[in-house]
Simulated scan of single mutants.
Amino acid sequence: MPHRSNREMRDCCGALVFLIVPIAIVLWYLYSPSYDLLKNVAALEQDYRDNVFGQHLVELVVLKAVPDFLNNTDPKKPLVLSFHGWTGGGKNHVSQILARNIYPAVEQRKKCVQSFDVTHHFSQEESIVKEKLKERIYKTVEHCERTIFIFDEMDKMPPGLIDVIKPYLDHREELDGISFRKCIFIFLSNTGGEMLTELAMEFWRNKKKREDIKLSDVESHLSRHAFNKKSGFWHSSLIDRNLIDVFVPFFPLEMKHVKMCVRAELRQRGRAMDEELVTKIAEEMSYHPEKERVFSVKGCKTVATKISLYL
């Protein structure tokens, strides 16, 4: 074997370092939790844009506030969102989009996403419900620090009951040895739906674009409406103590948005785009007010069934 000089050995080692270091950086990046998070955020953005229509203020929250919160390794409190609007606006749809993109794996989702249906889970005696709720929240976060909690039909919850979870939403390092600061709490409610419909109708009649409605135009109204209406958030300490980060308005969908839903459903089924069918299905949906037929009564809820009937 030929003898190599010290200079040759140094050059060889330098070349190896030049190759190994970038490879190590790439491998670390690919297998680090932050890379998974970036992939999830990119998937969330694509899923939202492909499947949610007519909700410009929801987009602002879902594609900005949620990723910012997920990227924060040391949040001061959980992210707490309250979704408001009539049935069909997409509240449940958006919460499921968040859940399936933050936790793409089914097993992981079962472990880290907890959904509560008020009419089902909160039908027992209030004291029993409160204890069960606290226990379920605590045990879930014990095994998954970034748990997503979804409370559906908050407008049907007995007043005062939800305040039992206030300690988990507050600015605390830990509670009984567990930190809840990386959790996401999402409340779904029809409360405020009438006010949002009236605002959207006002813009429509004045020939203004609904996209010009700002979050600041509606958020304080939703907060007051939820606080004063005798339902789940009535005189709630969650609102009184400013623990809800964003009140998110879901406006009623117009016919053009229903058409977008039809196209999205056809794409998902691998069907050729048929604009005549798109228009036919959209026009068959129920709209209100009856004379103007501006807003879809059920949003896009029955689009899939309608398409199945025609296909």
Rank of each mutant, 00 (worst) to 15 (best):
F203R: 12
P159Y: 14
R172K: 15
E283D: 13
S179L: 06
R181K: 15
L161A: 07
K209N: 14
E254N: 05
L215M: 12
R271F: 10
M195W: 03
R269P: 06
K230L: 05
M157A: 15
I165P: 11
S231G: 09
R172C: 04
F187L: 08
R210T: 06
K214D: 02
R267Q: 10
T197K: 13
L215C: 02
R269V: 04
F187N: 08
D152W: 03
E276K: 10
K166L: 04
D240S: 14
M255R: 15
D155L: 02
L169H: 12
H235F: 02
I244P: 13
H257R: 09
L196Y: 07
I178P: 11
R263D: 09
R210Q: 11
G270P: 14
Q268M: 10
K280D: 07
C261Y: 12
E283L: 07
I186K: 03
I178L: 06
M154N: 06
K280Y: 07
G192N: 06
R172W: 11
K156L: 03
E292G: 07
S231W: 05
Q268R: 14
D170E: 15
A200E: 01
M255Q: 14
V262I: 12
L243M: 10
E174H: 11
G177T: 11
P158W: 01
M255H: 10
H221E: 09
D163S: 06
R172V: 07
T191I: 12
S179P: 13
E202Q: 11
H257Q: 10
D245T: 14
G270K: 09
V164I: 15
L175N: 08
